[in-house]
Design a protein around this nucleic acid. Structure first.
Lengths: 338, 338
DNA sequence: CTGAAAGCGCTTACAG
DNA sequence: CTGAAAGCGCTTACAG
C-alpha cells in the first residue's frame, strides 16, 4: 500500500505539504505542487479514507436508518434510497444502510462514531427514535415529520397532494370521495406522519365540500385492497371515487371492485396517491396516480444533511414537495345517481 | 467523547487490557474484567469504530456495487439489497451503497480503503468490473456470474428455474412455449449472465421437446410487454404459453395479449420467472410466478463474503438457488388447435 | 511557502 | 495476567 509518506519522499517534501495539495487546504508553490502531483500520479496514490476520518474526526459517512420489518419495501422506498445514495456519493459521502428496529440498537450504532450524520425514514407523529437521534448529537434529517415541525425534515406535501387529488376528482363531478389508508403496527399516536396529515387534509376537504368523510384503513397488500373494496361497498355505498394512500393495496382495490361487479372508472374512479407511475401502468385499467417525488427527495435529503454538516446551511431544512398527478384511465365522470 | 483511556483510568488498568476485554482477544483476570466492565457501563463507553478500523486495518464495511442507471430498480433488487444489509449488520458489518457506472470510479472507490469487501450486482457474462475488482485485491462476491465459474458467486439457478417453468407448462399440455427476455444497453457479449443462461436452458428444453424456439427481447416496461405480445402474435402465432424473464414487462404482456383479443390463460398461458409473488398478485388475472430467492441470496452473499474475510471459509462460495413456483391464475390447459 | 510534531483512538506484538 | 509503547495513515495548529 502506498501512503502519503511515500509520496512525500518521492516529491521531496513533508507529508504535511502533500496533505495540503490533496485537500487544497493551504496554498503551495506551483512547482512544489507539480512535483507532488506527479508523484501521486506515478505512484497511483490514493489517500486512505479511514486515516483521514480519524485524523479529521469526520468520516464522510451518512447512515440511512430504516425499519427492518419492511419485508416488502415499496417502489417509492427504493427510489428514495437509491437517489439518496447517489446524492451522497456525488458530494463525496458514503451512505450506509442501517436496518434498525429498536431504539437501543440505533443509539448503539450512532455512538460508534462511524457516521457524521443520519437520515431517518418512516418517521412517525411521535417518534422515540427522533429523541434518540437528538440525544446522540449526530446531525440528522428526517424523511417525514413528527409533530414538531422545527426539526430538519424533507417530506412529501401530503396536504397539497390530497387537495389536488380531490380537486381532480371534483372536476369529474365526484363528491362522494373515500380515502383508503394503510394499517400499521404502530399505535395510533405513533402512526406515520403521512397518514395523519393526509387524513387531516382529506377531512378538511370533505368538510369544505359538505360531505361526510369515508375513511377505510387496510393492510398494504392485494388482500388489503380487496378488503377495502368490500368495506367501502358495505359501509359507504354512495362512494363514487377513492383516493388511495396505500401503494400496496392499489391493485387489490381494483380487483375487489371488479369482483363486486363495479367497473373502473364507470362506477368507481380511483387515484393512487404517493406511488410510482410504473405501478399505475401495471394495473388494468391503468391507474391515475400521484407520483411520489421520491427520487427528488432522496437527493434533497442527502444534500440538506451534507449542507448542515459542512456548515453551508445553518437553518434546519424544511422541504416539502407534493406528488405529481399522472392521469391514467381510472378516473371518469361521476355516475349519475338515480 | 469518552475514550478507552477514560475507561482504563477509571478501572486502574492500561488501555491494552481494556481492549482485551472488549474484544475478548486475551484472557483477563475475572476481577480485572469486572472492574473494566463496570467502568464501561458507568461511563457508557462505546469503542470508536474508525480508530479500531485504522489500528486493525479492517473496517468491517462492505460495499454493494450496483449500476446507477437503474431508474426503476425492480422489487427483486430491493429485496436483495435490504437482506444483504441486514445480513451484514447481524455479523457486525456495515453495508455502503456504491452506485457506479464507470470502472474508473469503481477502482477509485475501492482503492480508498473504506471497505473490506465488495458485492457486485448485475454481473455480465464478460464484465470488466470484475477484472477491476480482482485487480483491486479487495475480496468480493458476485451476484450473478461471468463466464468464469471459478470466482466466488451467489446466483439464481436460471437453468433449474426455466426447466421447472417448462415442465409446469408441459404438464398443462403446452408445447409451443415462447421466452420473453429483457433488452439491455449492453452489447450481446456483455449481456447479463441471467439472460444468457436462461436462454440456453430454454433452447435446450425446446430442442428436447422437438419444438423450434421463439425468443423475443423487449424493454423491461409495460410498453415492452405490449410489444412482446404483438411480436409473438405476428412472428410466432402458434405460441400457447410464454415464460417471461422480464419482471417489468409482465403486466404489459397481459395487457397486450388482451388488446389482441387473446384471453389469459384461455389462449395464452403466462409464467413470469424471477420476480416476486407480490407482482403476481397485482396483475389480473393473478400471474403464476417463479419467485426469486432474492431475500435468501442477499443474506447468503453477505455471509459468504464475510466468511471469506474472516477466514471461516477458504474455498470461494458457489451458491445457486432456483426460483420457487407460485401458481396463480395465468396458466391453464393448452388450447386445442384446429 | 514549508516542515516537524502532536494527535485522532484504537490494536497488537513484545516484555515481564 | 498486565503494561509500556509502537504504529495504523492521515490532519492540523504552530513555528519559522
Amino acid at each position: 500500500m502506498v501512503t502519503m509518506r511515500d509520496v512525500a519522499q518521492r516529491a521531496n517534501v513533508s507529508i504535511a505539504t502533500v496533505s495540503f495539495v490533496i485537500n487544497g487546504t493551504k496554498r503551495v508553490a506551483p512547482a512544489t505542487r507539480a512535483r507532488i502531483e506527479a508523484a501521486i500520479e506515478e505512484l497511483d496514490y490514493r489517500r486512505n479514507v479511514v486515516a483521514r476520518a480519524l485524523a479529521s474526526s469526520r468520516t464522510r459517512i451518512l447512515a440511512l436508518l430504516h425499519p427492518d420489518l419492511e419485508i416488502r419495501p415499496n417502489a417509492t422506498v427504493i427510489q428514495f434510497v437509491m437517489s439518496a445514495a447517489h446524492g451522497a456519493r456525488e458530494r463525496g459521502y458514503d451512505l450506509v444502510l442501517w436496518p434498525v428496529n429498536d431504539d437501543e440498537q440505533m443509539s448503539h450504532l450512532l455512538a460508534g462514531g462511524l457516521v457524521d450524520g443520519a437520515l431517518l425514514m418512516e418517521v412517525q407523529i411521535r417518534d422515540s427514535r427522533v429523541d434518540r437521534l437528538i440525544a446522540s448529537r449526530v446531525p440528522f434529517a428526517l424523511i417525514g415529520r413528527t409533530e414538531d415541525d422545527d426539526l430538519p425534515f424533507v417530506d412529501i406535501d401530503f396536504t397539497a397532494t390530497i387537495d389536488q387529488a380531490v380537486e381532480h376528482l371534483r372536476s369529474y363531478g365526484h363528491e362522494h370521495i373515500a380515502l383508503v389508508t394503510q394499517r400499521t403496527k404502530a399505535p395510533p399516536e405513533n402512526e406515520p406522519g403521512r397518514i395523519r396529515r393526509a387524513e387531516a387534509a382529506y377531512l378538511h376537504a370533505m368538510a369544505a365540500l359538505g360531505r361526510s368523510p369515508a375513511v377505510v384503513t387496510v393492510e398494504g397488500t392485494s388482500a388489503g385492497g380487496r378488503e377495502a373494496a368490500r368495506t367501502l361497498h358495505e359501509r359507504f355505498p354512495d362512494t363514487t371515487a377513492v383516493i388511495l394512500l396505500n401503494e400496496g393495496a392499489s391493485a387489490g382495490l381494483v380487483k375487489g371492485a371488479r369482483a363486486l361487479g363495479l367497473t373502473v372508472p364507470g362506477d368507481l374512479s380511483i387515484i393512487s396517491a404517493s406511488t410510482t407511475r410504473e405501478l399505475g401502468e401495471m394495473i388494468e385499467p391503468s391507474l391515475t396516480v400521484m407520483a411520489a417525488p421520491a427520487p427528488e427527495l432522496g437527493r434533497l435529503a442527502a444534500d440538506a444533511l451534507i449542507d448542515q454538516l459542512e456548515g453551508v446551511q445553518d437553518v434546519p431544512p424544511h422541504i416539502l414537495i407534493p406528488c405529481t398527478l399522472v392521469p391514467g384511465e381510472s378516473v371518469g365522470p361521476a355516475p349519475s345517481r338515480p
